[in-house]
Design a protein around this nucleic acid. Structure first.
Length: 106
RNA sequence: UAAGUGAAUUAGAUGAUCGCGGGAGCAAUCCUGAGGAAAGUCCGAGCUCCACAGGGCAGGAUGCUGGGUAACACCCAGUGGGGGCGACCCUAAGGAAAGUGCCACAGAGACAUACCGCCUGUUCAUACAGGUAAGGGUGAAAAGGUGAGGUAAGAGCUCACCAGCAAUUAGGUGACUAAUUGGCUAGGCAAACCCCAUCCGGAGCAAGGCCAAAUAGGGGAGAAGGAAUUGCCCGUUCCGUUUUACUCCCGGGUUGGCUGCUUGAGGCAUUAGGCAACUAAUGUCCUAGAUAGAUGAUCAUCCUCGACAGAACUCGGCUUAUUGAUUCACUUAGCAU
């Protein structure tokens, strides 16, 4: 994931949460918002409920890896925010990946 | 061999593919990239800004001695006390004749007191008066303890030993220790207030600096005094008393980029000093700097693959969490020689 592919500003996150559509998976939550003036950007959110800093980092890295390898499958010209559910701390890489594919299909 | 005590080390490795942060380079590419606790934010400093002639009070911290350090509540070496057969471990350990306060329940009595008992006197007797801390009972704690003498009964009343106190002498830088002598003595709690000694400005990298953008030069109230001296007072300084100083309230705007940002009371080795903590000299090494926040995924091999856990200005400590090993020194018990 390059820097320009990331969603950074607090304002952008708020827009996606307020106006976007939501899809729930087993371990992940996906927020989608179509935008006209930008390419696709992705943000990851892992709350402190998931675990301590080590656990949160692990979940973030796995999600980032999955997103990087499947970048082509994401919709174009969208802001996407992935949120990790509390269960995700027990999920393996494969489980997260299958969850990710299912969310994209729906 | 078993049980144990005290230290120290390590924190998976190697290779392949894809991928991320930082640095160098025109580029290809190369180099580099989390911990022993990075944690808790509990102490102490550096650094930055604010304030600062000075004095006093309040408040806080520390509390056996000597040393180490930039500093500390930390470390080292000792002293006293407590625990363990021992290696060793624990210890907020100044002052109780400056004052105040507290000592539950029980008990006659918790700091000045005779409940039972014992003895003496008066009395036929009950009872009363006096003496008495040896015995009983209560309690965490009750007039130093044990033995002997002594006495109406007793009591450091007398003596011996032990404990405690004071003085002298000796040793030690000192906490203190030892010996001798003396008078034989009326609790505990200061992690209760307090007293004594020593030390102490405030806020923190979202500190602070630069650049850019944006908004505003506003409205209302108080007002002859106000502000600074970051708790208070004295003192000092500054501004204002002609609406304009100043204070409070309302309203409006900004939270982008660069910098601070990693070379430091730094690590390692040798030598010298010191019991040690540590210090000095010389040589050598450069080892993260992100900002929605960089270390992952998959596979193979080795030996079973591991716990706690993720830098956010930087150091020195403390405390807490924790797996599997390895090494060294020592103690006790048993067996063999």
């Amino acid at each position: 994931m390059k820097k320009e592919q990331r969603l950074k500003r607090r304002e952008d996150f708020r827009r996606v949460y307020q106006h976007g559509t939501v899809k729930f998976g087993r371990y992940i939550v996906m927020h989608l918002l179509p935008v006209s003036d930008s390419t696709t950007k992705v943000g990851i959110s892992v709350s402190k409920k998931v675990g301590n800093a080590v656990v949160r980092n692990q979940v973030k890295r796995r999600l980032r890896e999955i997103i990087r390898l499947n970048w082509e499958q994401l919709p174009e010209q969208h802001y996407v925010v992935f949120g990790a559910k509390v269960k995700s701390r027990y999920a393996s890489y494969q489980q997260l990946q299958t969850d990710f594919y299912q969310l994209l299909k729906v």
